[in-house]
Nucleic acid binder design. Sequence first.
DNA 1: TAAACTTGCGTAAGTGCTTACGTAAATTTT
DNA 2: AAAATTTACGTAAGCACTTACGCAAGTTTA
Lengths: 314, 314
Amino acid sequence: MDFYNKVGKMAIGSRLRGLSDLITTDAAQLYRIYGVDIQPRWWPVFYSLTQTTENSITAIGIEIGQTHASVSQVIREMAKQGFVTERKNKHDKRKNFVSLTDKGKAAAMKLNDQHKDVSAAINRAFSESQYDLWKAIEEWEYLLEQKSLLRRVQEEKKKREGSMVQIVDYRPEHKCVFKQLNEEWIRQYFKMEESDYKALDHPDEYIIANGGHIFMAVYEGEVVGTCAIIKMNDKKFELAKMAVSPRAQGKSIGTLLGQACIKKAKELGAGTLYLESNTLLKPAINLYLKLGFQKITGPPSPYERSNIQMELKL
Amino acid sequence: MDFYNKVGKMAIGSRLRGLSDLITTDAAQLYRIYGVDIQPRWWPVFYSLTQTTENSITAIGIEIGQTHASVSQVIREMAKQGFVTERKNKHDKRKNFVSLTDKGKAAAMKLNDQHKDVSAAINRAFSESQYDLWKAIEEWEYLLEQKSLLRRVQEEKKKREGSMVQIVDYRPEHKCVFKQLNEEWIRQYFKMEESDYKALDHPDEYIIANGGHIFMAVYEGEVVGTCAIIKMNDKKFELAKMAVSPRAQGKSIGTLLGQACIKKAKELGAGTLYLESNTLLKPAINLYLKLGFQKITGPPSPYERSNIQMELKL
DNA sequence: TAAACTTGCGTAAGTGCTTACGTAAATTTT
DNA sequence: AAAATTTACGTAAGCACTTACGCAAGTTTA
């Protein structure tokens, strides 16, 4: 199929199903060859019943990895053809115990031959092949169990979108959006305090002129995040005013801003980066931890909403 | 799934489908993440349409490896949601040309990102894996194209059943079945001749006492085939009276009998094995060819039904 | 001991494809 | 030019499962 090559390995799902179909379409004819008048879909149930004298619907389903509904349907068809009999359990009247009839057992004998031959044919095909399909499937099952495809794709999305984010220095024209981004999240969780207005209305004076720095995150031409470091003394800066627009979350923008701030603080000769936050903001705290910050107990903060203090030694 | 291990590699079909499901079930959620309101099953059609400005139903089907019926259904759904428009072809009014609307194109842009991320995720998974699933699938597709699973199983069946066939020397109690087996096939195609009765009614005198040999094939305790070598002179034997019961055909019994006769003829010091047959009996002629016999032109035969003569140099 | 939950099962409906079939248009054969 | 065949498409129904739901029977909790 040329399409597969165009689309690339993304088509792995379709391709797997295609191969599965290629293998299973022959099945119906196979049963005819062995003179057993059964439906291919009965096979797993049939096989399971040959292993245990009798079994309940749900138990069979679990064993063969299908739903009880599917087994129930198959059993009904098999019973109609006289391959199995059903028997209600005495102790637990909900349970429906199923076992092979004589006709079923006779068919099972023939199926046993078929099982032998199919196994032999498949094993021979395996021995003819260079790449081990069986092990490859096992490995993929394991890989996807460890981390689902969905999560893998989400990670790739984050990475791609993160690479499209630019971290730029604060410029006067950012004044308005700088305040807006911060006000947005503060109002969502808390209320604006006096000290907020001071820094947000006059970033140039309170932050930059004071020896600090502000970064802005730009995504698709739009400013979607910000973060600042404020000079406390020659050796200590505060990480503050971190804000990311809710529309742009999930793109690792906080991480990128944090990393830029840490780098800048080092350049400015800081030995410690300090911050105040609130334990209510779990994603933020997680981000700080990921950046290397650790909880400390310091002097009280001027901000009402602050209930946790953290520090990073540079 | 424990069942897989019990059943062995015969479950390869189910297992492939299982893995395919594991990969494709995530798909539905994926589209939501990318903010595109499309059905996963639309994807191949969608992708195909982004490659060509417009295309007909059947052509799309061929490209994506599905039936036109499937494409027709998908297009109907997509049109209802306004992703595509249909346009009857002027020159050929049967054709229905489909193209993306603006809404469709916008969705295609988003899908493009999704395609990138999914491809990246899958490629990363491939690079994490040790066994190459992709190549393994390719190889199996090739193997099954060369020889279908059905044929492979049939071969195994033949081999297994062949190994259950015993070739034994003629004993007096075989007299009746020896005649019966031969009469059965002769009557089916021709009519019994005078010379038939001589050899079939008195095998001891005409064949064995004369320095020849008769083999019987036994399957599941029942005599199901026979074949004889008749001495023509010290260096030349005739292969004759080969008969296999129709109920036991397809088990390579003819081959086994033939091989036994060839071996015996060698032991008896023959240099040539000769036979007469009829070109009507194609499977028989094929068997003789497979055993190494070649067509010759010799003196006329006493049997009316003989129209071909063959010989094997030992 | 009643109420709430869990378990086992059957039935219905959905899924994403397929095959089967019918119809109209185009093409080839007679 | 009529008849037969092929092509393009739509619709219906089937396949082998699934999920959703409801009922009855058991078990646990309050």
